[in-house]
Amino acid sequence: MSQPLVPRQLYYRVFVILLGLTLLTVGVAFLELGPLNIIIALTIAVGKALLVLLFFMHLRYSNGLIWLVWGGGDLLVDAALDHHAERLPDAQLASRRRLVMHRRTPCWFRAEVLPPHSALILRVPPADRN
């Protein structure tokens, strides 16, 4: 069969590394590193995800087509994040300028904090505006 038979030893090793990285990410979270905190946390998370993908999910031993599918999906999400990241300063401005909160309804449902061109906008129904 084409399925790779990965030695059990390798799974145990990956498991130990994943646990170690989890401890590391918790430890680093308690240090004051400014913007580096989130960068390090996400880098460790990406590293852990890669370990799971490559070894537990056998991506390392998979054919090119599966790499292509996975890479394509990843790029789509990256593109979405970039798209919104570009507009973040805009979003922050907008949040100060036009933040609408309602007392009667959950604000996490009603908050209008994004510029109109954002796909993620949560609009307040016009009837509710005062």
Partner: peptide
């Protein structure tokens, strides 16, 4: 995750 990132950056 994208929604989270946007609102986290805002608040």
């Amino acid at each position: 995750f994208t929604g989270y990132a946007v609102y986290r950056a805002a608040y």
